[in-house]
């Protein structure tokens, strides 16, 4: 069973639009790279083009994840969580005494959370990390007897699980919701979420590059501007309205939910930037060309995915 309804017109339109936009971006990037004269313009265009290239890969990975039901998606999003959690812990100060609890996070808690998605055991899915992992992690560290930064160490590990594993696991879990009359199947919910959030990121970047003047959070993220945020959010909300046929929302609902997602996504990015600043790093990793690490790409999903999941689950399921 696939989460995508391939016989629907909506599916066909969505796929054409996605690949149309990507092709347009690649072609524009090609002509920009020919016409760029100054060194600075060349560097910007090169970065833009490597971002576009990465987008092709990311879109194809996402469509592969959606081609299966929640079982296949659980596997692919599980790998995404693993890579993100790996970057997060690498950049987090840990001590020898954390070794056992970190091992359990990587090899028991993370796979178990995605097994719960695979198995669609919603009750356990919703509480396993906030309740059981929350208790288990300090139990495992306290036995090692190292009290240096004891609370901070456990809190950092728990935070990593919440942000990289728990939040992200809500994306494939969207495929298990019983929503009536989805024209593209449940995959449409995921595409809507990812398109609005990532679209808002890209559009904020473009608006900021075109007319950004006033930094919105100069100490955290000097490149984010008020102009970029406003322009990007409004255009991402319009994108959400255009895509409302993928979801059970009417146009107004799509607009309001898109707006909330953009705000949560914006703060997600800002909060993860604050953590990067605290650690003194610029990017979480080097995995995705032009973007930094996995965590740099999904930071805005971390805070919006659980919200979106619960809005759909509470108001739109039968």
């Amino acid at each position: 069973m696939s989460a995508v309804d391939y016989h629907s017109d909506v599916t066909r339109h969505v796929l054409w639009s996605i690949f149309g936009v990507l092709s347009a971006a690649s072609i524009t990037g090609y002509f920009l790279s020919i016409s760029a004269k100054s060194e600075r313009a060349k560097a910007t265009v090169a970065n833009l083009n490597s971002r576009t290239k990465s987008w092709w890969v990311m879109v194809i990975v996402l469509l592969c994840a959606l081609a299966f039901d929640q079982k296949g998606s659980a596997l692919i999003f599980g790998i995404i969580s693993f890579l993100a959690f790996r970057e997060y812990i690498t950049a987090t100060p840990t001590r020898r005494a954390d070794h056992l609890s970190l091992f359990v996070c990587f090899f028991l808690i993370l796979p178990f959370q995605y097994w719960l998605v695979y198995d669609t055991w919603y009750g356990m899915f919703a509480i396993m990390i906030p309740v059981y992992a929350f208790v288990l992690i300090p139990v495992l560290t306290v036995l090692a007897g190292d009290t240096t930064e004891f609370l901070a160490r456990n809190a950092r590990t728990q935070w990593g699980l919440m942000v990289c594993v728990y939040s992200i696991s809500h994306i494939p879990m969207l495929e298990t919701l019983d929503v009536k009359n989805l024209k593209m199947g449940n995959a449409g919910l995921i595409l809507f979420l990812v398109a609005v959030i990532q679209g808002s990121d890209v559009l904020q970047y473009i608006w900021g590059k075109l007319m950004g003047k006033h930094p919105i959070a100069p100490t955290l993220s000097p490149k984010k501007t008020i102009e970029g945020f406003v322009g990007g959010t409004i255009s991402a909300c319009l994108l959400g309205v255009i895509m409302h046929r993928l979801t059970p929302f009417n146009m107004w609902q799509a607009f309001v939910i898109s707006f909330a997602l953009c705000c949560l996504g914006f703060f997600g990015g800002l909060i993860m930037s604050a953590i990067k600043r605290e650690r003194g790093i610029k990017d979480w990793g080097t995995l995705i060309e032009g973007h930094g690490g996995m965590m740099d790409r999904i930071d805005s999903l971390c805070f919006s995915a659980p919200f979106f999941f619960h809005v759909v689950r509470y108001f739109f399921t039968s």
């Binding site: 790996r86 812990i89 690498t90 840990t94 020898r96 070794h99 970190l102 091992f103 990587f106 990793g285």
Partner: peptide
């Protein structure tokens, strides 16, 4: 860098950091 965190002395199993 980080190898003493990936597999510290005295532990049998590694954690997959970068």
């Amino acid at each position: 860098q980080n190898l003493n965190r990936i597999l510290p002395k005295g532990y049998l199993l590694p954690i997959p950091l970068i």
